[in-house]
Design a protein around this nucleic acid. Structure first.
Lengths: 200, 200, 200, 200
DNA sequence: TATGAATGAGTCTTCATTCAT
DNA sequence: GATGAATGAAGACTCATTCAT
C-alpha cells in the first residue's frame, strides 16, 4: 500500500482515475469520439502516464468490459446458487441485473454500443465471457421449463435475448432524474419477464 | 425513361447506390469507422459526386434513419387502424416490427448504435420521430389496459421500452443463417409480449 | 439591344448581374473565399451560365480591375487636360479620385487587396495600366515642380505613392455611415496633399 | 543551454522556424494561397509538429499580427515619451514607422492584406490593438494642433489614416534593391507629413 | 444559351502512438 | 515513473472546371 486509494477525484491512484474518466467520456460521446488527449486531461495526467499503465486506448475499453462482466457474472452466480424456487431466483436475477445496469449506466451504455470498436481478439474474449453469462441465465430458464414452472413453448435462448435486449436498452431511455427509481423499473421488468414465461 | 432501372449494383442511380453502400458499411463497421472514401469506392463514384447529393457524411446517416422511421411508422399506423380486438393488433404490430427489423437488419444495427453520431439537430429530429412512433405503440397498450384486456400494473411507457429493447437487440444476436426464421422469432416475441401484459 | 439593361437586381442582363454580385462578394469576403457557387447563386443563375460568359473565375476579377482602371484613367485624363493652373488641376484630380474611390468602395477594396490573386499575365496587364495612370499623375506633380509651384525636394514618384497609399487605404477605414461625407474627405485629402508639396 | 541557437534555418527552434517560414510565405503568395503543407515543408517538420505548437493556420497568422503590433506600439510609445517639441516627435515617429515597415516588409505586406482572413474574434483583437496604436499617434497630432504648431483644419483622425495609408502602401511598391533606401523614404514621408499639417 | 452532374486534386485538421529525456 | 515533442497516416470536406444534353 503505497500512496492513495479512493474512487474518484484527484486523490485516486492514476490508473483508477484514468479508467473512471475514460468510462465517463466513452459513455458520453462514444469510444471513437473520445481522444486520448481528452482522457488524460480529464484525469489530470499526461499521455505518457496513460501509456505507462495501459497498452493502448483499446485496453482501456477492454478494462471497462472486463469489470462489468466480472461484476455481473458474480452477482448472477450468487443468485443462481440460492436455495429457492427457480421462479424466485429468476425474478431476483432479473431485478438484480436491472438495478446494477442502472447504477452503472455509463458501463451499460458503453457495453451495448462499443463492442465493435474493440480489436478482434479482445472482442472474442468479451463475447466468450458474455456467452458464459448468457448460458448461466439460460440454465435457470431451462430449469424452470423442465420443472413445469415455465411454459414449454418459448425457446430459452430466445427468452434470454429477449430480456437482455430490454436491459441493454435501459441505457438509451432511463434517466436517473426521471419518475421511476431503479427498484421500480427492476420490479416491473422482472414482473414482465415472469409473466411472459410462467405457466398459465 | 431515365437511366436507372434497378436498386443496387452499378446500374442504380448514383444517390441510391451511395445510400445502399453506406447502409451496408455503417452496419458492418459503424459510422465512425466508415470513411467517405470507402463509401464512394464501394459505389464506384468520386467524393465530389457524394457531396453533390449529400451535404455531409452525417446527412447520409440521417437518410438511413429517416427511411427506417418512415417505413416503420407507416406499418404501425396501418396495423393500429385495423378493426380487430386490441390484443390482436398488438400481437400483429409486435410480430410485424420483428419481421421488418430482421429483414432490414442493417438498418436495425445502425438504428440502435449510431444515433449519438448524428449532429445534435438531426438527433433531435430523429428522436422526435421516434417518440411519435413510441407513442403510437403505447396508445395500443393503454387501450388494452383501459379495456381490461391487459393488466393494470405495468406502466405502458415502460412496456414499450421493454419490448423495443428486445427488438433492437435483434441486430446483435440474430443470424439469417441461424436456426430461427424471422417469422418464428416474430411469433415468439409477440407471444412473450402478450403473455407479459395480458390479464391473468 | 436584345433584352434588358439596368445595373442590378433581377432585371439586369446575366453578365452584368454576375459581375455586380461578384464585385460585392469579392469585396465582402475576398476573392479566394468567394466560391463560384456563391456568385451564381447570388446572381440567380447556374454555373454553366457563368462559364458561358466568363472564361474563369479569374476573368471575373480581371473585369473588375479593367472597369476601375478605365474609369479612373478617363477621369484623370479629363482633369489633366483642363486649362487651369497646375495646382488647381492636382487638387481637382486628388479630390476626384477620393470621391470616386468612396463611391465605388467595393472596387477600391478589391483593387488593393486582390491583385496577387490574378493570374500572372493578367497581373502584368493590370500593373501596366496602373503604371500608366501613375505616370499621368506624376506628370502633373513634375509640372508643378518644374514651374516652381511645388517644392523641389520631394521625389515625384514617391509623392504619387504617398498619396495613393492614402487613397487605397480608404477602403480599410471609410464608413459611408460615418461622420465624414465623401466630399469632405476629398477636400481634406486634397488639402493635405497640396500643403505637403507646394512651395513654402 | 537548450538546442536552439539561431533565429532561422535548420537550427532554430521549431516554433520559431515555423513562424519565420509562414511569414515569408504569407507575404509571398498570400494567406489563402499558402498551404499548411508548404509551411511545414519549408520549416522541415511535419504537420503534426505545427499543430503541436499552433492551434490552427489562423493562429500562425495571428502571431504575425501580434508581433508587429507589439513592436510598433513599443516604438511609438518610446518616441511619444521623449522630451522634445511635438513636431520633432511626430517627425521621428513618422520616420521610424517607415523604417521599421521597410525593414519588416513581409510583415507589412501581410498586415494590410490579410486581416480579413483572420477569424472574427482574432480580427477583433487585432483591430482593437490597432486602434490603440492609432490613438497614440492621433494624440500627438492633437497636441500639435492644440499648441498651434499644426493647422486647425485637418481632422486628426483623418490625418492618421492619411499617413498610415501611405505607410502600408510601402509594401506594394517599395523594392529593397530600388533607388531609395529606407532612411531616404522615411525622411521624405516624414517631410511630406509635416508639411501637410504644420502651420503656414 | 444554359443546365447540373461529376471530377480530382487539394484543403485544414485530428489523433493514437512512440521515444529521448 | 512520467513527460511532451514529434510523427505519419488518415479524416471530412471544398471547389474551379468540364461536358453531355
Amino acid at each position: 500500500m503505497t500512496t492513495q486509494h479512493g474512487s474518484a477525484g484527484k486523490t485516486a491512484a492514476v490508473p483508477q482515475r484514468l479508467l473512471a474518466e475514460a468510462t465517463r467520456l466513452f459513455a458520453d460521446r462514444g469510444f471513437d469520439r473520445t481522444s486520448v488527449q481528452e482522457i488524460v486531461e480529464a484525469a489530470g495526467v499526461t499521455k505518457g502516464a496513460l501509456y505507462h499503465y495501459f497498452g493502448s486506448k483499446d485496453d482501456l475499453l477492454h478494462e471497462v468490459y472486463a469489470r462489468v462482466l466480472r461484476l455481473q457474472t458474480e452477482r448472477l452466480a450468487a443468485i443462481a446458487a440460492l436455495e429457492e424456487p427457480v421462479a424466485d431466483r429468476v425474478r431476483k436475477a432479473a431485478a438484480d441485473v436491472v438495478v446494477s445496469s442502472i447504477q452503472n449506466l455509463d458501463d451499460t451504455k458503453i457495453f451495448f454500443r462499443s463492442i465493435h470498436q474493440l480489436s478482434p481478439d479482445k472482442q472474442r474474449a468479451v463475447r466468450s465471457d458474455r456467452r458464459h453469462y448468457h448460458e448461466m441465465f439460460r440454465s435457470l430458464i431451462e430449469e424452470g421449463r423442465d420443472t413445469g414452472v415455465f411454459r414449454a413453448e418459448p425457446v430459452p435462448d430466445l427468452v434470454v435475448d429477449f430480456f437482455f435486449g430490454s436491459v441493454h436498452h435501459l441505457a438509451v431511455w432511463y434517466r436517473p432524474d426521471g419518475p421511476l427509481g431503479a427498484e421500480q423499473v427492476a420490479e416491473q421488468f422482472a414482473d414482465l419477464l415472469l409473466h411472459s414465461i410462467r405457466t398459465s
